[in-house]
Each structure stands twice: as C-alpha cells, then as structure tokens.
Design a protein around this nucleic acid. Structure first.
Length: 572
DNA sequence: GCCGTTTTCGGCCCGACTGTTTTCAGTCG
C-alpha cells in the first residue's frame, strides 16, 4: 500500500462526504489528511507495522484518522468509503468535475432528479428538466451542457512547460498596455508545480476595463466566461482557463501573495495575521481599516514576522516554520548549472551527433556533459551492445580532440533488466566515465522485485547514478512501486547519486523524493535527457522541480565546476 | 475530524462573481 493510495481513499471519502452533506470542516479534515500522507516521504504502511502511534505525530491526523489509516493498510480498504460508494454512484462524483457544479448542486441533481450518470445529466439538461429544479435556471442548464463537453474532451491538468508559455505570452501582451503598471503570473504556474490546472494573471491598473478588453482580444482567448470589476475568467484555445485579477497599484504585493497561494500556505499566513490582530486579503494587510502592508510581498511577509518565501516553497510543507527559524534554503538557480549528464545522439534515438550536442552545450555555457545513449535492451531506440558502445566511445574521444572548452564524458544510460541484472557486463561499465542506471521495462513488477533491481544497481560499484528513479510519466502513468526509504538508504551508503530528470513529462525524482534525498545527503544531478540540441531547453523545469524540493546549489552535483564534480564522483 | 498557555467546546481564511434571487447560496480559487 503506497502513500498515494491511502491519500486517494481519503480524497474519495471527502468527495463522497461532501455530496452526502457532511460538516464541511470534517470534509476538510479528510482532505488535509490526504495531503499530509501524500507529502510524506516515509511509508505510512511501514509506520503502521512499526508503531501506529507514530501516525498521531502527523499534522492533521488524530485518533480517528490514524485508526482509519491502520484499517486501510491492513485491509486495503475503508468500510466507511465502501458504504458511501454503495450509496452514491460514481457518475454523481464525476459531476463534480463540471465547472459551476459543486457538492450542493450535484446532490440536488442526484436526489431530486435521480440523475446517476453524466449521460443522464446531459439528457435531462437537453430536455429542460434541470432549469425547473429549485436553485437552478436556464443559464445553469446551459453551462452544464457546455461543461459536459469540456469534461469529455480534456479537463486534465497540463504540463507546466505548456501552461507557462501561454501565461508568459499573455503577461507580455498585457504589459504593452500603458495603463497597466505591473503584471505577473501567479497561482500554481508561479509556484512552478509540475502540472497546472488553470492560470492566474495579476495586473495593477487604474483602468480595469482596458485590461480586461485587452485580454479578451488576445488571440489565445476563445471565450470570456465571467467578468466583474476586479476579476475576469476566460478560456484559452488550449482549453486552459485563465483568471485575470486587476488590483490597485498599492495592493500588488498583497495580491501577488494572495493569488500565488497555495491555498494551504495562505491559510497559515492568514492565521498568523489574525493572531497579530490583523486581517490579510488581496488588497493588503489591515489593522482595522488601516493598511499595514501591501505594496510588496516582502512587506506582507515581514508584517507577519517572516522573511519573503520563494513561491516554489509555498505549500505549507514546513517552509513557514523554516522561514520563522531563519532556515530557508538559498534555492538553486538555472545559472548555477555547469554540466548535463544525460543526453542522446544519433547513435541511438537522438537527433544530433556527438559533436553537435557538445557544441550546443558549450554555446549554452556548460562546462561538461556526459553522452549517455541507450543500452541494447532498448531495441526500439537502437540501443548499444558492448561492441557498438566501445566504438561510440572512440567516436567521443575523437570529438574531444576537436571541440575545446568543454569536457565530454563517455557515458551510458544502462537498463536495469527485469531480472535485476545490468544490461551490459561489469567489464564494459568499468570502462565508462559515467554510468546512469535506469528502469525502462517491467515497471509494473511487484515492489519486492523493483526494490531488488534498484538495490542491485545502486550497489554496483560501476553505477554512478540512478536516472528517472520511478519511471513515472506525469499525467500518463504512475511510477514503479518501490520502497523509497530502502532505496535512499542504499544510495547514501554506496555513494550512488540520484537524478532529477528535467523533461516536463518525467520530473522524476519529484519534489518530495528529491527533498528526502537531500536530507540524506545524497548528491542530486539535474539532467535534461536531451534527444536533440533543443532538448537542452528543458533544464529550467528540472531547476523548478529542485527549487520546490528546497535544493541549494551545493546539493546538486552538476552545479559544481568540473574539477569539483570529478572529485565528488571519485569520492563516491 | 482536528486542535488547544485565551479554549476539551467551538472554532476552523477570505473575497469575487454568478445565477436565481428580492437579500443570498453556491462555487471557485
């Protein structure tokens, strides 16, 4: 039983309780518990086995919830959830995904009209039966039909990389308007979450109509969904929805803080304000009617007794306590990166030659790279056997002689096979400058076997680092089931490093795992996994992920100059 | 359901917008 599975059960239970009309604060307690469990690097299943009383130490977990976690871990399910599932059909829960429909309205549709599926909902809306329901009307009925179409075609969160491009373009366009004095992206996009559900853009202007008209006229916008004095919501061509907020110039700091979130972070910050006799909203921090702070985020945080907290950390996962103690990390930046230790060439499934990759890396200011083409198991990518690999390394030697000003390591991305052996023999691996071991196949094997494969690779003296540890693909497939704590301990013991793969669809390690690795003193490498010279562009997303994990330059091996990098590599 | 040197009961962040309403509930972020 993985933590995410336990969290999922609490989330499902919260949804169902909400539909059942439960006390909203009780619902929140379940959602908080889900968050806590999901953000935990330790295994709750292991805690149950070891000593269930440990669960009570977790934030938002009391007697009742800790008992429920024990039941979930021991039986794989929760009777209370099963009871509610029997009472409320899954189609009713799906209705919650329709914009504008919350628990109250969905409950009415279910109870008063007996609608149990999205199909039944559509039919009822088309027949005009919904508008007749108390609290509903023609407009709600119409928006349900539109919402159903949206849920059917997409509704998924999009990669940060895609969302950020659109948000940045819209901000740049708004900045062209002379009446707009300041503009910024806020929300989860500013926090650099790996996926983004919608976009938030904040501007300061004395003329809210001009700002909203400008956004409405942007070619990326297909529909204005709502418009008031301070807020406009639009749908973009990509399907993403974007909220524009217009606030007075003097409120920019308070509004940035407010709209950047996260919700959980802001709840704690506002509680701190309350404790100081203050009230915090998007316009400022107030004592009575008097504004105490509002112009900059720094002012707002200072007024509640904290230093400014970088957006990437604002998740209420300990950053507020660290800020209070003066222990916020100095987060790594893109400019700190000196090397890239994972990339492909035309020898396997890359688009560019060794030389082209080396020159492109050098042009971006990198001091060293490792060429890491696939090993033979990856037949689809024309993976290298020992003979071809040795020839490839000879070709790298040749380029080393031709391209100056950049170090090129002879590397390999070697598969860890399903039987827990390496795809290439030790004598070949021993000739490499850099061995990145990875799982590509058999990701659905049972946890015991995945653990065995990873631990074998970590203990192999020729393996320098494990690449994209879990093999997860964001929004597409979960990672392999593994005992993360055992993997971390082994990596720390054997001096094996762990990669943050910067590709927007991988971002593996995730922020929680990367933070746990840092705590163990395991060096992290942030690599692009570039399959072309343009592939180097994704480094920024790896940096964002590292920042959300609280990593500093000193935690990242390839943020070191080459001599120091090599020294660290030899010592490990 | 959780939490607590103000509390073991009574709180639990805060405001904008919409639609269906004649003053507000529901939804959203």
């Amino acid at each position: 039983m993985q933590n995410v599975e336990v969290a999922r059960i609490f989330e499902d239970l919260a949804d169902l309780l909400e539909l059942d009309g439960a006390n909203p604060f009780r619902v929140r307690a379940y959602r908080n518990a889900a968050r806590t469990v999901e953000a935990l690097s330790a295994d709750v299943a292991a805690m149950v086995t070891h000593d269930p009383a440990e669960l009570l130490q977790l934030e938002g977990i009391g007697k009742d919830l800790s008992d429920k976690i024990v039941v979930i871990v021991q039986t794989g399910q929760l009777p209370q959830l099963e009871d509610l599932k029997a009472k409320i059909p899954p189609g009713v829960v799906q209705m919650l995904r329709i914009p504008g429909l919350g628990p109250k309205k969905v409950a009415a549709l279910f109870k008063d009209l007996g609608l149990e599926t999205l199909e039944a909902l559509k039919q009822a809306a088309e027949e005009g039966r919904i508008a007749e329901l108390k609290g509903f009307g023609k407009k709600t009925e119409q928006s349900i039909l539109e919402g159903l179409a949206i849920v059917a075609e997409a509704g998924q969160r999009v990669f940060l990389a895609d969302a950020k491009v659109e948000a940045d373009a819209i901000v740049a366009d708004l900045q062209q308007l002379s009446s707009i004095t300041q503009a910024t992206v806020a929300g989860s996009c500013r926090r650099r979450k790996e996926t983004v559900g919608d976009l938030d853009v904040l501007v300061t202007s004395s003329d809210h109509n001009a700002a909203m008209d400008r956004l409405a006229a942007n070619p990326l916008v297909v529909k204005v969904l709502a418009r008031g004095d301070t807020k406009q919501r639009v749908r973009l061509r990509s399907g993403l929805e974007l909220d524009l907020r217009v606030v007075p110039d003097e409120s920019f700091g308070a509004a940035s803080q407010y709209f950047t979130g996260s919700k959980e972070h802001n709840i704690v910050i506002r509680r701190r304000a309350q404790e100081r006799g203050l009230k915090l909203n998007e316009y400022g921090l107030f004592r009575g009617d008097e504004s105490v702070a509002s112009r900059t985020e720094e002012e707002v945080y200072a007024a509640v007794g904290l230093p400014w907290i970088p957006p990437e950390l604002r998740e209420n996962r300990g950053e507020i306590e660290r800020a209070e103690a003066g222990q916020l990390p100095k987060l790594i930046e893109l400019a700190d990166i000196r090397g890239d230790l994972h990339m492909h060439t035309t020898a396997t499934d890359g688009m560019n030659s060794i030389r082209e990759m080396a020159e492109a890396a050098k042009a971006r200011g990198l001091q060293y790279i490792a060429i890491t083409d696939h090993s033979k198991r990856v037949t689809m990518a024309n993976g290298l056997d020992a003979e071809r690999l040795r020839a490839h390394w000879k070709a790298i030697d040749k380029v080393r002689g031709e391209v100056s000003g950049i170090e090129i390591l002879k590397g390999i991305e070697c598969d860890i096979l399903e039987d827990a052996t390496m795809d290439l023999p030790d004598d070949v691996l021993s000739e490499a400058d850099w061995v990145l071991a990875v799982l590509h196949y058999g990701l659905k094997q049972p946890r015991e076997q995945i653990d065995k494969r990873l631990l074998n690779a970590i203990r192999n003296p020729h393996v320098d680092a494990i690449g994209h540890l879990t093999g997860r693909l964001v929004n597409q497939r979960p990672g392999a089931d593994l005992t993360f704590e055992d993997v971390l301990k082994a990596a720390a013991d054997h001096g094996t490093w762990l990669e943050i793969n910067a590709h927007p669809s991988r971002l593996d390690l995730d922020d929680i795992h990367a933070a746990a690795a840092k705590d163990r003193g395991i060096p992290i490498v942030i690599n692009t996994d570039a399959h072309s010279t343009a592939g180097f562009d994704v480094m920024q997303y790896g940096i964002f992920q590292a920042r959300r994990a609280g990593l500093e330059a000193k935690d990242v091996a390839n943020a070191r100059p080459f001599a120091q990098f090599q020294k660290l590599l030899c010592g490990s």
